[in-house]
């Protein structure tokens, strides 16, 4: 009887693979030879992208806008538009995500894999109180009473240091500041204790003081929950603040991967060297000509 109940999970659930003897050898997330094309003209957005993310690891994905950073995150979430053609493999805990039925992906999203988007004003529904939106994430994946759910939401809001979490939960998105909205999204992402959080430029729309605070919170929340993180940003300084490892994507292809310290000390690709130079604004003499990425790609950068 018990075995029977276990078998008849919600339809479309991915088959769980038996965990191998050595847990460490199974990456949490693994992309292999991922290619993505868009539209009629088959513009290639990702070229042969492969990477591994261990449980609890924080990997920064850095590149210019249009380089394919967000496409990578959307491919993992199974949220690419219908016009996209994808080949290769994305495995989460050994289970193939590419081509998996929508129901299976929906069960995964928000529970095992959560996402924090760049623009909290567009990620939140303007007509719904934020507490209810956060509660939605819980109730999609577990049956819980609304009272218990609300308690959990308020606890989660308190954990991301939202002042007066009860009041925030009853507020509409427009009544909150940008930093508060981003903390609501972060709290919502953390609600189901996901094993992987995808952050797509989570602080780009915020000003520097709020950014510093949100990054700090993210850092602590990840440490507390042990979740792994794929952190997408164009800003090397921001990525270095959160991640141990960095992957540099240029024109849809990964050009360099490694620990932050090594990459900063010995960047091998000219694009990486350009990014590092551009991020060191504070070291340039005021008014002097700043090195640009193009200088390095042309080979004229120092």
């Amino acid at each position: 009887m018990t075995a029977g109940t276990e078998m008849s999970g919600p339809r479309g659930t991915l088959p769980r693979e038996v965990p191998s003897a050595s847990q460490d050898s199974v990456p949490l997330l693994e992309a292999k030879g991922l290619n993505v094309w868009f539209g009629r003209h088959r513009r290639q957005a990702l070229r042969d992208v492969s990477f591994r993310l261990a449980p609890g690891q924080r990997l920064g994905l850095i590149g210019q806008s249009g380089s394919g950073k967000s496409v990578t995150a959307l491919a993992v979430m199974g949220l690419l538009p219908d016009t996209a053609r994808t080949t290769g493999s994305i495995r989460f805990e050994g289970r193939e995500l590419l081509g998996a039925p929508e129901r299976a992906l929906a069960a995964l999203r928000g529970r095992d894999i959560a996402m924090v988007f760049q623009e909290p004003m567009t990620a939140l529904d303007p007509t719904m109180r934020v507490g209810r939106q956060a509660a939605e994430a819980v109730r999609l994946h577990a049956s819980a009473t609304s009272r218990a759910t609300r308690r959990r939401v308020i606890e989660a809001f308190a954990e991301v240091e939202l002042p007066d979490p009860e009041r925030v939960a009853d507020a509409f998105p427009h009544e909150l500041s940008g930093g508060q909205r981003q903390r609501v999204l972060l709290a919502t992402a953390l609600l189901n204790r996901p094993r992987l959080i995808l952050c797509d430029e989570p602080t780009t729309a915020l000003d520097v003081t709020v950014q510093a605070h949100v990054l700090d919170l993210l850092d602590r929340s990840l440490a507390a929950s042990g979740a792994a993180c794929l952190f997408i940003s164009h800003d090397l300084a921001v990525v270095a603040r959160v991640c141990q490892d960095i992957m540099v994507v240029f024109d849809g292809a990964i050009v360099e991967t490694g620990p932050v310290a090594r990459l900063l000390a010995n960047p091998s690709h000219p694009y990486t060297r350009g990014l590092i130079a551009a991020a060191r604004l504070d070291e340039a003499a005021p008014g002097s000509r700043l090195p640009t990425v193009e200088d390095f790609l042309r080979g004229t950068g120092s």
Partner: peptide, 11 residues
């Protein structure tokens, strides 16, 4: 202090 900076050489 809030301006994000790269770690100087080796963090």
């Amino acid at each position: 202090a809030a301006v994000p900076r790269l770690p100087a050489v080796l963090p």
